[in-house]
Amino acid sequence: MEVIRFDSSIRDSIQIPRGVQLLEQEISAPTFTCDGICELPAPFDLAQDWVLFTQQWPHREPGHGSVEIHLAIYADHSFEMVCDKKRSNTSLGIFSGTLYVCDPAQLCWTRQNNPYGLTYVGLRWVVSRSDLAKEWQRLADGLSALTPGIPITA
């Protein structure tokens, strides 16, 4: 699993739109919105949507032909994914500045590390499996231009 941890100051490069801030205050289920994304600086402006949640219950979307690249803007969470083909489980701490991949066809879930913790606020790029390496590199390069990143083996 590809993971890069950028300095949490990356969030200073992103102006979270007021509409997203308001959603964050009333979140009860995972929420997706594209409010204000086109106004963000590159490489954030090509994200599909903002993702907000406190936790995500175990779920999968069988037959999903794409994968998701996520950048956590505000987070103090743990992400789990069970890979059917490899018969393995991936556990990952997700904090502000974490860039990671989620395969929606695999069983995955996310929970808060602290029950009174942050609402997860992040950006999501949905890409075809065949374009994952190219898009991952594009985002990693774009984010690295803003702040240093540390590759993490997951």
Rank of each mutant, 00 (worst) to 15 (best):
S96A: 12
R138C: 05
D141K: 11
T110K: 02
A42K: 14
A145F: 05
V121H: 06
G117R: 00
I27G: 02
D45R: 11
A75C: 02
K85W: 04
C102M: 09
P115V: 04
Y116P: 02
T33C: 07
Q15S: 10
G122K: 09
T147L: 10
E24L: 06
A47M: 03
D84W: 01
G97H: 07
Y120H: 15
G19I: 07
C102N: 13
A72T: 06
Q112C: 00
T90I: 14
A133Q: 15
S13M: 09
S88M: 08
H59N: 07
Y74Q: 14
V51M: 10
L118M: 06
S13V: 03
D12W: 06
Q55G: 07
F53N: 06
W57S: 12
R11A: 10
D45W: 08
I69F: 00
I152A: 00
D12R: 12
E39P: 01
D45A: 13
D49E: 11
R124T: 14
D103V: 08
G97L: 04
E39H: 10
E135I: 13
F79N: 03
D103E: 11
I37A: 00
W125V: 04
S91I: 10
I27C: 00
S88D: 12
P17G: 03
T33A: 13
S128D: 15
P43R: 02
L99A: 02
G63T: 03
V3P: 08
R111E: 10
D103F: 04
E24Y: 03
P41N: 03
L40G: 06
G19N: 12
D131H: 09
S96T: 09
